[in-house]
Design a protein around this nucleic acid. Structure first.
Lengths: 156, 156
DNA sequence: CTAGATGCTTGATGAACTCAAGCAACGAGG
DNA sequence: CCTCGTTGCTTGAGTTCATCAAGCATCTAG
């Protein structure tokens, strides 16, 4: 995605031996985890000729979703989704299907090619995979459980 | 940041009673956490008249950083940083300082106004704050510790 | 002191994003 | 029925984000 062979000056994060982490402490580490995830995602998506935004959308499309819902999930204006889906459709990765129950709605569906792209991208996210491997089984279980509690299904 | 008053169709995540989470399971929940964080950040940044990208950069500027380092951390081309810093500088949130030791380098420094903007944005991230409050003290400690192990300082 | 790296900027181009406006289709209340 | 307000998507204009190719200045080795 970019030529960034540069050395990393590391923004540190406090160690907190003893006291409980504040919300700001947590925000900083969550920011770091999120940035790391997206950095890796962007790189893996670029290999497939996709931008990070396109990859984010494809990943959401485990089930068909109305464009409006995509706008909600991606936290952007609905008009933005039109162009996004246009481009993904041009690549043959998604298609639009009129909703029989409500003809205003267009459901976006990932094609087989789209689903495959997601699989390839995920398999290619080596930095994140390496990060997971830095934890032991117990750590991975805890992380999975904690992230689940952070964002229960209702919250999306 | 946008008008998205829509109901959320929830992409679920498996429950896994018993077996260990696979990397794909973890990727899905991490994706969700990252998306939630950025959704909240974008909204809070918009209140301050900043885009999410500008907010991301400001948050990195706890210490002065050379533009090249910013490119590395934001995983984008160095030429992109020029415009980004231009716009933040126009808002009075950062300034460029020539590095005395190496006159090619321009260190970007957050102004007091910039630091304040970060504080306000963080205080405004209610959804994320609510998510943290969904955990108990022990959960927050574990999450903090696990995220720290996921991305140790070297990894940025 | 030259030769090659490295750090930043510029210019051109395309993607992502917002807002305002518009059309089509739904869903009430007369 | 049939307006009327709302909702879902698209279009068009304009900004920001992001890339690449090129260029200039400065540092660093040899």
């Amino acid at each position: 995605m970019s030529r960034t062979p540069a050395p990393h000056p590391a923004p540190e994060t406090p160690d907190l031996k003893g006291s409980d982490p504040t919300h700001v402490d947590l925000l900083e580490r969550l920011a770091r985890a999120a940035a790391g995830y997206y950095r890796d995602l962007a790189a893996a998506a670029a290999v497939q000729g996709l931008t990070m935004t396109q990859a984010k959308m494809l990943i959401l499309l485990r089930q068909p979703l109305p464009m409006r819902a995509l706008a909600g999930l991606l936290a952007c204006d609905a008009s933005n989704i039109t162009g996004l889906v246009d481009r993904l459709e041009a690549h043959g990765l998604v298609s639009r299907h009129l909703d029989p129950a409500d003809r205003r709605i267009k459901n976006v569906v990932a094609t087989e090619k789209g689903l495959e792209a997601v699989r390839v991208i995920r398999a290619d996210m080596r930095a994140t995979s390496a990060a997971f491997n830095r934890l032991d089984d117990e750590g991975r279980r805890s992380l999975y459980e904690l992230l689940g509690r952070l964002h229960p299904d209702e919250t999306v």
